[in-house]
Design a protein around this nucleic acid. Structure first.
Lengths: 139, 139
DNA sequence: GCTTGAATTAGACAAAGTCAAAATTCTAAT
DNA sequence: ATTAGAATTTTGACTTTGTCTAATTCAAGC
């Protein structure tokens, strides 16, 4: 399964498989992302990568995440108006989003059906369908 | 229907109905929002309101939109990682989002069903369910 | 008119992400 | 090993969106 813990070696191999040259910084960024228990944002990845000593710069993190997305290795999640979360699971799935904690949890797509959607606007094709179940703690 | 063209008078009445004191600035902001053919962002509303002459400040637009949301008159749509779009239609519905044009279109909820969602995480309640069909022009 | 609280303003500020140019690293060819 | 060009990273400035703060204005009640 894609979401198993990765070693730095397997991250490098994953990068190569997606047509990405595995530089030191890219491996560290990929490793941090795939090790994270939550879908991290860019600034969280930056903090993780640089936790022990400076490994990489902010711009490199952003540039690298953008490359990962372009190469289809990672998915952007847009649930918060001020930041992007990154999801290493590119298979079709959806999310619970706890708005109080700012945390995402995967909903497996298996068994989830949407019925009754109207036809697309003319001339358009679907890029994806996001289902976000916004949750908050019960009071 | 909620989405019919509004006069400034009917915007004022709508504000009162939502427990909002209808000041001049609030009426102008509400009028711009309800007149917009698209779901506008804050900066678009600011530009519309101030098109002929300075009617209000940026901070007032943001403060006012926040109040409209709190009072349930307007809904925030989060489909773009860098800005919030505002939707005067607070009934349950979903959206097509053209990522190339940055434009939203309503999908009426009637007939739309989601089946197969798992139970919520323990201790949580649903605040809402967003379905966003991301579209792009066909090539 | 005065007072008080609500509303607005203007400019500063913060956060997330981007940009541009310089520096550094990488890679392939010799 | 060296070189050259491409790729990548770095640094600090910048942009955009939204927030904050203190001063000012407005409106309602007395």
């Amino acid at each position: 399964m894609e979401l198993q813990k990765h070693s730095r070696e397997s991250v490098a191999e994953l990068l190569r498989r997606h047509g990405i040259n595995p530089t030191h910084q890219r491996i560290e960024i990929g490793y941090a992302l795939f090790q994270s228990p939550q879908h991290p944002s860019a600034d969280q990845i930056l903090a993780m990568v640089n936790a022990r000593h400076a490994e990489t710069s902010k711009a490199t993190v952003y540039n690298t995440l953008k490359l990962f997305v372009e190469k289809g290795m990672v998915r952007e999640l847009i649930v918060d108006p001020s930041k992007i979360y990154y999801d290493p699971n590119t298979s079709v799935h959806h999310h619970f989003y706890d708005v109080a904690a700012g945390e995402l949890a995967d909903i497996p797509a298996a068994g989830v059906h949407i019925e009754g959607l109207p036809p697309l606007p003319p001339g358009m094709v679907t890029e994806g369908i996001d289902i976000i179940v916004r949750t908050r703690p019960a009071r």
